[in-house]
């Protein structure tokens, strides 16, 4: 459905995307993962025809450059933040974009209903929360029932509760069979939504792999803060050290760095050592946005 062949994009002497080739099959979902400046958003903008580039990009067999309008009719675009005037009502924004996409009437209300905003149709964009704006962006992207969704940093402006419900909405779209291309630097988003992950570094495609393998491939780590009885902190540090976990005392808590997919292990180890844990916090991916160079060579990941 989406074919990217030898795409290069330069900004002066800086190469933002360097000879990237990818293919996303119809109904599949691909995440573009990489640190800031890796070229994720630039590549998305090339797909949308917003940036000039060397190479070739086709959507459903149509060239982005020569048939840009037709290509963009097949794409629903969800930007990082919906960029429309704040004094527009949601229904006005949806109606305007619907007309641009050559669909109108009941589809506008339906789009708002799909994302749970039909009760807020008369609300102005400026009055909406970050979560509502992001839902609005998705509603606009769904107008015209496009087979492809292109999304930039899906939940970067959302709190954790809004992230969860937004990801659910996106999962529904994936189940509906849409082809999805998105950028993210959040591991849980990639795991929840992607079939494959393209790891970008300095504009180059380093490898393609399954999202489940990504954490190990990249050596992604998380930091877990554990709140313990003060008199058991030394015991806890010692118990974790015997299993190879390095823990740092931090006031009434300890901070333990773990592999991303083993965050529960320190809790289990402390339970086995009969050390009570009053509370815990996840401090985010220790190196999310990951440097793909930390990973091992992939096995069985095809780069087209």
């Amino acid at each position: 459905m989406i074919t990217i062949r030898h795409v290069t994009r330069r900004f002066g002497c800086f190469t933002a995307v360097d000879d990237v080739s990818l293919h996303v099959e119809r109904g599949a979902s691909l995440a573009l993962w990489g640190a800031n400046g890796a070229g994720k958003t630039t590549l998305l903008r090339c797909v949308l025809g917003l940036l000039r580039f060397e190479g070739r990009i086709e959507i459903d067999g149509m060239d982005v450059r020569s048939r840009g309008k037709d290509v963009r009719r097949l794409i629903g675009y969800v930007p990082q933040e919906v960029a429309l005037h704040d004094d527009l009502r949601l229904i006005e924004a949806v109606t305007f974009v619907a007309r641009l996409r050559r669909c109108d009437g009941p589809e506008t209300v339906e789009a708002l209903r799909t994302v749970g905003l039909d009760a807020h149709a008369q609300k102005r964009i400026g009055e909406c929360s970050g979560g509502m704006r992001q839902r609005c962006a998705l509603a606009l992207a769904l107008l015209g029932d496009p087979p492809v969704l292109v999304m930039d940093e899906l939940t970067s402006n959302l709190d954790s509760a809004a992230q969860g419900s937004f990801l659910e909405l996106l999962h529904d779209q994936k189940k509906a069979g849409r082809t999805i291309l998105f950028t993210s630097h959040r591991h849980h988003e990639v795991e929840a939504l992607a079939d494959r992950v393209a790891l970008l570094r300095d504009g180059r495609l380093e490898r393609l792999c399954a999202p489940q393998a990504m954490a190990d491939e990249l050596g992604l780590r998380a930091s877990v803060r554990l709140y313990l009885p003060p008199d058991r902190i030394d015991d806890a540090i010692a118990a974790l050290a015997t299993h190879g976990y390095s823990a740092q005392r931090n006031g009434v808590s300890i901070a333990v760095e773990t592999p991303l997919r083993q965050k529960g292990t320190p809790l289990r180890l402390l339970a086995l050592a009969s050390i009570p844990v009053h509370d815990f916090e996840l401090q985010g991916d220790a190196n999310s946005g990951g440097d793909p160079s930390h990973g091992r060579d992939p096995s069985g990941c095809a780069v087209h």
Binding site: R26, R73, L100, R102, G177, D195
Partner: peptide, 28 residues
């Protein structure tokens, strides 16, 4: 790239859009 269990979204073949549409110009 393998798809999830979902059935791929059917693509309806639409007529090519004109390069310059008066309706779009007026809307903008």
């Amino acid at each position: 790239m393998s798809a999830d269990t979902a059935t791929p979204h059917p693509t309806v073949r639409l007529a090519p859009l004109p390069r310059l549409s008066p309706g779009t110009v007026l809307l903008l």
